[in-house]
Simulated assay, not measured.
Amino acid sequence: MVVVLTGCGSPGRPAEPSSRPPYGVSVSLAQWRSDEPAHAIEVAVRNTTDTPVHFTDVQLISPSFKTLPPESKDSTIGRTERTDLRIPFGEANCSPRGLPEVRPATVAARVRVGSEPPRRVVFPVPHPDPLLARLLRDECSAFLVKQAADIAFGPDWKRDGDLMRGTLVLTRRGAGRVAVGSVDGTTHYIVTPARRARPLVVLEAGAARAEAPIALSPGRCDPHAFAEAKKAFLFPVRASVDGGEERVVIVQPPAERQKELIDYALEVCGLKK
């Protein structure tokens, strides 16, 4: 009698394909200026072999950020020191108790190597990744301030000569005294507060709303600037809660206000047709 010993798997079932990255292919993470408003990053692929690798989807996975569905791609990458694949990434997982430490991350992708069948692979990301650490810190810093108050531009803006005058508004959300130390300009606009002292405005613990008058003016007037206005409307506001560390909240006007501000700047700069 012949006894055949088999494993626990189902007879005839092919082995699961390896999730190890293809030989000679690695990834790192980067972010261009144009990625910031879109909440996106670049998966920078390096292929040191002559075998092309086709990517059909890419996904960032980390406990520090909400996991989004894989981003579809149709990219064949041959030998290269760096080829970028742009993907969105999820919101940071923040805590009201303070700033968290960045957690390890991987990049999952469905790839086809040469003539092989497609398979799912997982690329390691060296830990701690400096880009993810910065993104987590920035988003969670803003989160901590926003637990106490919303910070936004007011709805009413008026042209005054070469200036556009409006307000920065703080609206109560939770407990705490919120103080705004400064409102910084952007690549395209200079911010001039009406009040020169610090803090610019304070939402006292018992108040529901506070506002500070500010004025905007064009920071540059070359035509190329308005064609490349990637970060023109990402205004850094430095604020603290209950006298704690100042943290940066990015305040962005709504799309219709952005259009008005572009038209205003083009007119002031003498570029409006």
Rank of each mutant, 00 (worst) to 15 (best):
I61K: 13
P117L: 13
A40R: 14
W32P: 00
G219L: 12
I41P: 02
P104M: 06
V27G: 02
V202G: 04
V25Y: 05
Y189K: 00
S141M: 06
A152F: 10
K230S: 06
V4E: 07
I250S: 08
P17R: 07
S217Q: 14
A38V: 09
P155E: 12
T76G: 04
S240P: 02
A215V: 00
V4C: 04
I262F: 11
Q31D: 01
P69E: 07
G166R: 01
I77K: 07
V237F: 04
P11S: 10
A40T: 08
D184T: 00
K146Y: 02
D138W: 06
K259I: 13
A207E: 15
A239C: 09
A148H: 09
R97C: 01
P253W: 08
K231P: 00
R20V: 12
V113C: 04
G166A: 05
P253I: 02
A179G: 05
P254F: 03
V191N: 00
E256A: 13
V58H: 07
W32K: 11
P124M: 01
D160P: 03
E42H: 14
G9M: 09
V180E: 02
T83D: 02
A232S: 11
T106C: 01
F153M: 08
P100M: 02
Y264E: 02
P17F: 11
D138Q: 15
R209F: 05
R177S: 06
A15M: 10
V201P: 01
V111T: 10
P117C: 07
V3T: 14
T6Q: 08
A232C: 05
P11Y: 10
E101K: 12
C94F: 07
A44N: 14
S75W: 05
A105F: 07
D242S: 12
F55C: 03
V58F: 05
V249Y: 02
A175C: 03
S18T: 15
K158Q: 13
P118C: 00
